[in-house]
Design a protein around this nucleic acid. Structure first.
Lengths: 266, 266
DNA sequence: AGCTTTCCGTTGGATTAACAACCGATAAAT
DNA sequence: ATTTATCGGTTGTTAATCCAACGGAAAGCT
């Protein structure tokens, strides 16, 4: 596996010097790459209140490496003991759990700045999801956070700040799990759809939007059968509640209040 | 509301001195009470790797207070902004969520050393559960953990250690949510029952055990209808899989493997 | 003891979702 | 251009769940 800094280094063909992030007389391609990575990291809750120097300091102070994935590549596999957490730099990631009956349950859809596998890496739990890249060029930065927890004594301010941020990120994961759990309990297909569409409406603040999932994935995400989902969608259309074509939707009436409130941390 | 130390103080009628936890020439009742509290705190993951001195130091360094609840008292109420996390000292606590259809969904059953409301207190999320005392004499120690997170700079080693522990506790909450979510998705009543009973079997390491829930609560906990649960239990009994009387169960056959693995942190 | 409440099993009926299977339209691949 | 794969809608059958309601047994209360 290639180290994070190594990868940047390797991208500069023929350059022999060791890279330093703070010397800005390097070729544009390096600086641009560095910028792209830092852009993703900077907007992550994980690096909140940290300067670029802090971020790079931290990444150097713990074991880290970057891997690039193509569409449908498996990033992490269910039941594995995942020792590193992942931060999505570019691309899109699905986390899904296949149950005993063979149903694929789509747990989350992750974008740059989001993290994956953090519960397992921190808590030493075997993974309960399989993470797959949804686009070519999905880059993941892996971090070993073990040393920040358990019996180790922390003194470096940048590590303490990072630990605070990590705690917030894990809390956010817990909150999302709470909401997903509530949405999935004894809710009808209709209710799940209304919740989902209402959530998209609030996210985009527009009555017309397109969703990032096809029918099968949406069914997996809402934990229902695809044909049942299709039926329900058409029934709602026939009742004059919505219009849709492919993944483009339009809400014609006010959807019942969604349980999902704003996240004060993002 | 009564401060934690104040309460200990108040319990010694007529004594005028300020209490110190480390001077052991106090009346037995104080020392016993102190012991009881520390016993609960000591075995909590939240105070792992901390001496009694550390624990009391930390409790003094953040805002804390203790409240006592009677059976069926509400400890925290759904949708409230809960600024303090709770640690259960004595008694038993249920956390439940009542959905739009009026169904009560029992999310967790908590005992001394467990925490409640930690996601909301840390993440500033409105509560998604109502916590109720299940026994008289349920004592909860409330802690304001705000100051350990976000923009504050931490330096005290005891606070950093506590933050590490808090992170593990939140991770554990997330893990439990993950498992509960998986168990609740598209699983039949039979499967949920098998999972639950199998879990009790592994916990007690005995084929006979009694469960801490009555039928209604168990149905709420498994997110199914009570009559459906009752039907399924009797069907399993008729098929010779189990025997039961009230809350006492006996497994007559090996239950299918439970998804729930050991928690390496407890 | 007598009353009330809670708990648990049982039933029947209405509703709903899952499953398998098929088809047409569209997009992707060769 | 032709084939192939993917995607979305539709149908009918089967199975599971929910709901409301009832009744007996046990436990708690006065």
């Amino acid at each position: 596996m290639i180290g994070f800094l190594d990868l940047l280094y390797k991208s500069v063909k023929g350059k022999a010097e060791k890279l330093s992030f703070f010397v800005y007389d390097y070729p544009n391609e390096v600086i641009n790459m560095e910028r792209r990575y830092l852009d993703s990291l900077r907007k992550s809750l994980l690096f909140r209140n940290m300067t670029d120097d802090d971020i790079l300091n931290l990444i150097r102070s713990v074991d880290s490496n970057l891997k690039s994935f193509s569409k449908n590549d498996i990033i992490m596999r269910d039941r594995d003991l995942q020792k590193q957490m992942g931060i999505i730099i570019t691309g899109k990631v699905h986390t899904a759990h296949v149950d005993a009956n063979g149903n694929s349950n789509l747990m989350d859809i992750l974008y740059p700045g989001d993290v994956v596998g953090v519960l397992s890496a921190v808590g030493r739990y075997p993974l309960h999801i399989t993470a797959t890249a949804q686009e070519n060029g999905t880059d993941i930065l892996f971090l070993t956070v073990e040393s920040l927890l358990r019996d180790n004594v922390l003194t470096a301010p940048v590590q303490i700040r990072f630990l605070q941020n990590l705690t917030m990120v894990i809390t956010q994961k817990g909150q999302r799990l709470t909401i997903k759990l509530e949405d999935s309990i004894r809710h009808s297909t209709r209710e799940k759809l209304q919740d989902y569409l209402s959530g998209q409406y609030h996210k985009t603040k527009s009555r017309t939007f397109s969703i990032p999932l096809n029918r099968q994935d949406l069914a997996d995400y809402l934990f229902v059968d695809r044909s049942a989902l299709s039926n329900e969608l058409c029934r709602m259309r026939d009742e004059g509640l919505i219009k849709f074509d492919k993944s483009n939707f339009e809400l014609l009436v006010e959807m019942p209040i969604s349980e999902q409130e704003e996240d004060p941390n993002t």
